[in-house]
Design a protein around this nucleic acid. Structure first.
Length: 484
RNA sequence: GGCGCGUUCGUCUAGCGGUUAGGACACCGCCCUCUCAAGGCGGAGAUCACGGGUUCGAAUCCCGUACGCGCUACCA
């Protein structure tokens, strides 16, 4: 009974990959990796109205961006393909055929209107819902005749009359019992012959020899129905693990109102894939209750289903930001420089050519900025003063640091002092300015802030002396003059 | 309505019969400091949803209640 682990992530391409789906993907991937199993990616595109190729492409892109690779699936194939449901209709037909033969599926000719009235009547009554099995009681001759006549019909699952309560041994929730009486003969195939979700997904999971189904909580109630189908198909029932949902900060379902929800939106908002991966992994799973920084490699070796928590989790952007900052700070400088470049280019501050023409200059800038970031989007605003020809001085900053006579005359003196320096390095600049402040009798901070506002436009900037070095003497002197 | 799931600091979580209920983010204070961060140290913050049991002993086991969520479709 010990089969090699095979898990799958089966997104529906009706939209971008959102963080809930991403977390499900991460757990599946990590579980496969940690158990030496196989991670299958399957596209559940049975909804032709809402499924698009672009959505599929974006989902694949998002998964790869997060660093998740699949062993079987779109673009790489595999022994159990095809890996999108629209290409598997013959499988569903074959499975249904088997069920017709073994008596676990039967045709139902009830109209939608009939069903509707039955449903409302049932709900008003004892609440014991579901289809009343009218067509299951039809005698075989009648069925054959109506089928022969081409009467429209769906195919329903014939829940075994002697089936006891259905127990789902969920890896996250433990044993949950669903009364057999609550199982109705649900529809497997629609009038037009297409399979319903609960049927298609089971046929696929069975065909693909999936051993563990790790998916969202919203499918827990569907699980007993699916188990019935596995049984009707004569296939082993996989182990299930149902993940709780991720909510917005207000405890409500995540939506656009909460800002970014898609993986790509988080990318665009300056989050690193390794940070998002780490954060999402810990949103519902823990390594030991203490560790917060969990790399992809650790995830891939230490992930286990039994440490998934049952509680729904609220998405906390502030913690993600903190984690993003941790990853930024821990990144090797050369790597940070490379990954910073696109953000500078996008902001129109520089070009890749310039970057590769003088990499040393960019490298010296790395430690000044990387230490104070939460998001990559903060890079361009913080460094704009180094690239722009002219800067605008923030009025509030001017008011604060340049409005007094003391500050203005000190700034003028600073300009003179800096012009005279023999060398243009941080140490020399700092010494000169400190000496100047002392001889003028002004507080160093006052002088520094005056210079900072004059040269960067703001009271907040990367370290001043290093910034001036990068700015260069000419620009520094020009800006001081302009500010006076 | 029926069935199912969930409920530990504001947030993410540890805990799996005996703990001063631990960690992280956020927050507050101090230190460091050219601003902002980062970093270091410290602090506040949880009657473990509520009510009953079981037990010498319960956040941990059982039963209810409340609240939230999911399913109950020829959606996925």
């Amino acid at each position: 009974m010990t089969r090699p682990t095979r898990v799958r992530f089966a997104p529906s391409p009706t939209g971008a990959l959102h963080i809930g789906g991403a977390r499900t993907a991460i757990y599946n991937w990590a579980f496969a990796r940690a158990t030496g199993g196989t991670f299958v990616l399957r596209i559940d595109d049975t909804d032709p109205e809402r499924s698009t190729a672009e959505n599929t492409a974006q989902i694949l892109r998002s998964l790869r961006w997060l660093g998740l690779d699949w062993d079987e699936g779109p673009e790489i194939g595999g022994p159990f393909g095809p890996y999108s449901q629209t290409e598997r209709s013959d499988r569903y037909a074959a499975a249904l055929e088997r069920m017709k033969v073994n008596g676990s599926a039967y045709p139902c000719f009830c109209s939608a209107a009939d069903l509707e009235t039955k449903r409302t009547a049932a709900r008003a009554g004892d609440g014991a819902a579901g289809y009343d099995r009218t067509c299951r009681r039809l005698d075989p001759d009648t069925v054959a005749a109506r089928l022969q006549a081409g009467e429209p019909h769906v195919w329903r699952l014939a829940v075994p009359a002697d089936r006891g309560d259905i127990v789902v041994d969920d890896a996250v929730r433990g044993e949950t019992v669903f009364p057999a009486s609550a199982m109705d003969d649900f529809v497997l195939a629609r009038t037009d012959g297409t399979p319903t979700y609960n049927f298609a997904t089971v046929v696929d999971d069975a065909d693909m020899e999936i051993t563990h189904v790790v998916r969202g909580d919203d499918h827990l109630s569907n699980t007993p129905r699916q188990i019935l189908v596995f049984e009707a198909l004569g296939h082993f029932v996989p182990r299930f693990a149902h993940l709780s949902m991720i909510w917005g900060a207000d405890g409500k379902k995540l939506s656009k109102r909460h800002g970014a929800t898609s993986v790509e939106a988080f990318r665009d908002e300056g989050f690193l894939p390794e940070a998002l991966l780490n954060y999402l992994a810990l949103l519902g799973w823990s390594l030991d209750g203490e560790t917060t920084i969990v790399s992809r490699d650790v995830l891939a070796s230490a992930f286990s289903l039994d440490r998934i928590s049952k509680n729904p989790a609220i998405f906390d952007v502030e913690k993600l930001e903190w984690m993003n900052g941790v990853y930024i700070r821990e990144m090797p400088p050369a790597e940070f420089a490379e990954r910073m470049l696109p953000w500078l280019v996008e902001a129109g501050l520089t070009t890749a050519d310039d970057f590769y023409r003088r990499p040393e200059w960019y490298m010296t800038l790395v430690p000044l900025i990387s230490e104070r970031l939460k998001r990559m989007t903060e890079i361009a605003p913080a460094l704009r003063f180094l690239f722009a020809d002219a800067i605008e001085l923030d009025p509030a900053a001017v008011e604060k640091a340049l409005s007094s006579d003391e500050a203005r005359s000190a700034l003028a003196a600073a300009g003179d002092a800096l012009r005279e320096l023999r060398s243009w390095d941080a140490e020399t600049i700092q010494t000169a300015l400190r000496d100047l402040a002392e001889s003028l009798g002004v507080k160093p901070k006052v002088l520094f802030q005056a210079v900072r506002v004059a040269t960067t436009g703001s009271t907040v900037s990367p370290p001043l002396f290093e910034s001036l070095v990068l700015l260069g003497r000419d620009a520094t002197l020009a800006r001081i003059a302009a500010a006076l």
